[in-house]
Write a protein that binds this DNA or RNA. Structure first.
Length: 521
RNA sequence: CCCGGGGUGGAGCAGUGGUAGCUCGCCAGGCUCAUAACCUGGAGGUCGCAGGUUCAAAUCCUGCCCCCGGAACCA
């Protein structure tokens, strides 16, 4: 059996539709998933929605709908967006599903039986309007009132169950030390380390008086409170509590992709929970950065409902394409760090990289072969690729791209492809000028075009995890020997010998191909 | 106050000891196969500030200034 690779994204609150920031995370995870599949791993890619929250129940009530109905509808809307972006998830878990409930109850019971859960009292600031506790800082920042209602909160004390997180401080610190690769990128690790070293508080993991949510098996009057419930989706989706064998094949997860804001829950609370249940922690937690909006005057803003500046993925996808969307965020926003979005910048990047560089190379190569050789380069079967490949160290380039992908430095991987594969190809076309050469030495011109097509083959393979549709279109425009589905990075420089002459098989209209990315004017 | 990230030509970034690099934009040429695309050349930076270490610093050390983020349930 092939080596397995289990990766997840954070589950999202279905209070509102996904915005470009949420999509950023899914795209980054998708590149990883596609890359691993290409390289022969047995991949399981999980996504989902986090539905067992008071806010969801309340929102559904506002709309006069049963919560489950509301959640299912939102889950459908989310997946519509993910499909439009070609996110290749294998499973989509909703935490309101029975499989999650069952697994959750099983897990919390186990932790309880192991003696890591105890009953106590939670005391804090409670807002009657919100029907929930507010944190000390939330109240403080709002000037002693509830930030949402502007009313003074009540001091309230209620019984609840605590998870003994504080007991795991030493075990966590030891684990971090033994697994320096656990928290990525490194800068995030320091933050968590400081937190854990400063001492951990036990966390309240239950709520009382809620109908919506998962019942605590050892005390049915309570429901399980958000984080304890939410994090468990990573194990319940692969069979924890329902299919032990399946669970054991996939766990531990290879990467959890999350937003940098929830690092502590994934790097401290989550492994502690797993320790408490006698399970292994995940191998890596990767915290990506945020996408900020850049206004016309150049100011950065966080997207928020109150500011009314949410950009939805569909706004961009319907105007341009899912591929263009993927490219922009993968190329412009460093995955480990923060990035910016503006329509102006989007158009710039789209035209420069996609239309002018990649798209135009594709068009000119195809037209040259079509016009001068009727789309068929005779006697090229079994040929070695030529000059470009001796000028550029393709093997090294592929290695570098792989390295960058494995470190989730997607922007750098793409830059490498553009600078080391596409640019040389455009330069080569200019230097050899096959449109002139064909008049004096058609044999030589043919070889030049063969080389250029070969370079497009390389580009298609390297882009496969990033722009799956574009890559496939490019690849299938020629009769390259290997089936597209089986192509892997290594094939870029291994150069499988074609058994047939190279031919253009792209659909043409009046001798021209459809532009991959029409320029934005 | 504390912690983390960052300050490099107009914009966005790479660059952790050895003549400052890339993309976009701008200017001038070339080419005409191609989506007015492509190629070549050019202008433009005392690498936040001040000290220090060194034969040599954007790169190491010290101090300071500025921006962003964080401090328990927010992708």
């Amino acid at each position: 059996m092939a080596e397995r690779f289990y990766l997840t994204t954070a589950i999202d609150y279905p209070n509102s539709r996904p915005h470009i920031g949420t999509a950023f995370e899914k795209i980054g995870a998708d590149v990883q998933a596609r890359y691993r599949r290409m390289e022969g791993y047995d991949v399981f890619f999980l996504m989902g929605n986090d539905e067992n929250t008071v806010k969801v129940a309340r929102k559904a009530a506002e709309l006069g709908r049963p919560p489950k109905d509301y959640c299912d509808d939102m889950a459908r809307q989310f997946q519509e967006v993910w499909k439009a972006l070609d996110i290749s998830y294998d499973d989509f878990i909703q935490t309101s599903e029975p499989r999650h409930h069952a697994g959750c109850r099983r897990f919390i019971q186990k932790v309880y039986d192991n003696g890591h859960i105890y009953k106590g009292h939670y005391e804090g600031w409670y807002c009657e309007g919100c029907e929930e506790f507010k944190t000390e800082t939330q109240i403080k920042e709002a000037g002693g009132v509830c930030p949402a209602h502007q009313t003074p909160p009540l001091r309230r004390r209620e019984p609840c169950y605590f998870f003994a997180l504080s007991k795991f401080q030493d075990q966590l610190l030891e684990f971090y030390q033994q697994h320096p690769e656990f928290m990525q990128p490194e800068s995030r690790a320091n933050e968590v380390l400081a937190l854990v070293q400063s001492g951990l508080q036990d966390v309240n993991i239950t709520r009382s008086g809620q109908d919506w949510g998962i019942r605590v098996p050892f005390d049915e009057a309570y429901t399980i409170y958000v984080w304890f419930d939410a994090l468990l989706n990573y194990v319940t989706a692969i069979g924890y509590g329902s299919d032990e064998e399946r669970f054991r094949t996939w766990w531990p997860a290879d990467i959890h992709f999350i937003g940098k804001d929830i690092t502590r829950f994934h790097c401290a609370l989550w492994p502690a929970m797993l320790f408490a249940a006698g399970l292994e922690p995940p191998r890596t937690v990767f915290a990506h950065g945020f996408v900020y909006l850049k206004g016309d005057s150049g100011e950065l803003q966080k997207m928020s409902k109150t500011l009314g500046n949410i950009v939805e993925p569909m706004d961009i996808i319907t105007k341009f394409s899912g591929e263009a969307f993927r490219y922009y965020f993968l190329r412009e926003c460093p995955f480990p760090g923060d990035g910016e979005f503006s329509w102006h910048r989007f158009a710039e990047v789209y035209n420069a990289d996609l239309a002018n560089n990649l798209g135009n190379l594709y068009s000119r190569v195809i037209t040259l072969i079509t016009k001068n050789y009727h789309g068929h380069l005779h006697e090229t079967a079994g040929q070695q690729p030529g000059v470009i490949f001796t000028e550029v160290d393709t093997e090294r380039t592929v290695e570098q791209v792989e390295e960058h992908i494995e470190k989730c430095q997607y922007n750098q991987a793409l830059e490498r492809i553009w600078r080391q594969v596409l640019d040389p190809a455009n330069r080569y076309a200019d230097q050899k000028a096959p449109w002139n050469l064909v008049k004096t030495d058609p044999e030589a011109a043919k070889h030049v075009l063969y080389d250029l097509a070969e370079q497009l083959r390389a580009v298609a393979i390297l882009l496969k995890p990033f722009l799956p549709r574009t890559a496939e279109t490019i690849y299938r425009s020629f009769n390259f020997p290997q089936p597209w589905e089986e192509v892997r990075f290594e094939d870029v420089w291994v150069h499988p010998r074609p058994v047939e002459d190279l031919r253009v098989v792209a659909p043409l209209e009046g001798g021209k191909v459809k532009p991959l990315f029409p320029r934005i004017t």
